[in-house]
Simulated scan of single mutants.
Amino acid sequence: MLEIRGLNAWYGASHVLHGVSLSVAEGEIVALVGRNGAGKTTTIRSVMGLMPKAAGEVRFAGTDLMALPAHARFRLGLAYVPEERRIVPGLTVAENLRLGLVASPGRSGERAAIDRIAATFPRLAERLGQQGSTLSGGEQQMLAIARAMMAEPAMILLDEPSEGIMPVLVEEMGVLFRRLRDEGVTLLLVEQNVEWALRLADRAVIIDQGEVVHESSAAALLADQAIQERYCAV
């Protein structure tokens, strides 16, 4: 579904991705792991069209993305949940959810989409009229994920979803991500919580200093402590 070939990216004069190549098949969860600053977030920001300068080949469901702006990529069915969550202050939970439909025609009406999300996220269903910025950190993360799901994307890019979240909510997210995969949604998961990500994912890719250095099944990497310590240890 997602094919990345020879991806390079820059922040100003700093060349931070060096020919990154990886693929994500339809209906799988791929964990993109590595140390802080290795290039994980830059990779998914490049896929989403949010880097100031990027070059290479990125194809999604057969479409070349490199000439398309971020909103056009979203319209193709590619959603993004940033690490910062970006819950809009002053808007309620329901209003934040509606933003997920603004840039996309969606496949169902607004009411049906909110009802579907409320059924998936009971915590949010109880707080639709509450300002989103007053939710707990874990609830805000759930809201950011729910907002991305509003337009029924084919694939979701997730940046550090477990960061700063209580363990019980992290486990709930894991259950949700597996359910989404079983329903046909493809997930690319950038995560610093390596053990959790590997237990969740089907395949794993390690990036180090802007280059892909390892690819395997998630189970194989979970069992290989030497590679984890070499490339993922903080």
Rank of each mutant, 00 (worst) to 15 (best):
L2G: 05
I4W: 08
Y11L: 03
G12D: 09
G12P: 04
A13R: 15
L17G: 13
H18L: 12
G19K: 14
V20C: 13
S23P: 00
V24H: 10
G27E: 09
E28F: 04
L32N: 13
V33S: 08
V33E: 00
G37V: 03
G39T: 09
T41F: 00
R45E: 13
S46E: 04
G49Y: 01
G49S: 02
P52G: 05
A54W: 07
E57P: 01
V58T: 14
R59D: 07
A61I: 04
G62P: 11
G62L: 06
G62E: 04
D64T: 11
L65W: 02
M66Q: 10
A67D: 10
L68C: 02
L68N: 02
R73A: 12
R75T: 05
R75Y: 06
G77C: 14
L78I: 09
V81K: 01
E83I: 08
R86S: 13
L91P: 12
A94M: 15
N96E: 00
L99I: 14
G100L: 07
V102T: 13
V102I: 15
V102N: 00
S104I: 10
S104K: 10
S104V: 12
G106H: 08
S108G: 12
S108L: 11
R111A: 14
A112R: 11
D115H: 02
A118C: 14
A118M: 02
R127H: 05
R127P: 03
G129Y: 02
G129W: 03
G129N: 13
Q130G: 06
Q130R: 06
S133G: 13
S133Y: 15
L135H: 03
G137K: 02
G137N: 11
M142D: 00
L143P: 02
L143M: 06
A144C: 04
A146C: 08
M149P: 08
M149E: 06
A151I: 10
A151Y: 05
L157F: 07
L158D: 05
D159W: 09
E160Y: 02
P161T: 01
P161F: 01
P161D: 04
E163H: 11
I165L: 08
M166W: 01
M166H: 12
M166E: 12
E171K: 15
E171I: 00
E171G: 01
E172S: 06
E172G: 03
E172F: 03
E172L: 01
G174A: 10
F177P: 05
R179L: 13
E183M: 13
E183Q: 15
V185I: 15
L188E: 12
V190D: 10
V190F: 09
E191D: 15
V194I: 15
E195S: 14
E195H: 15
L198Y: 07
R199F: 02
D202S: 13
D208G: 10
V212K: 05
V212Y: 01
A219N: 05
L221M: 10
L221W: 07
D224H: 13
D224L: 06
Q225S: 11
A226V: 14
A226C: 03
R230S: 05
Y231S: 00
C232F: 06
V234W: 10
V234I: 12
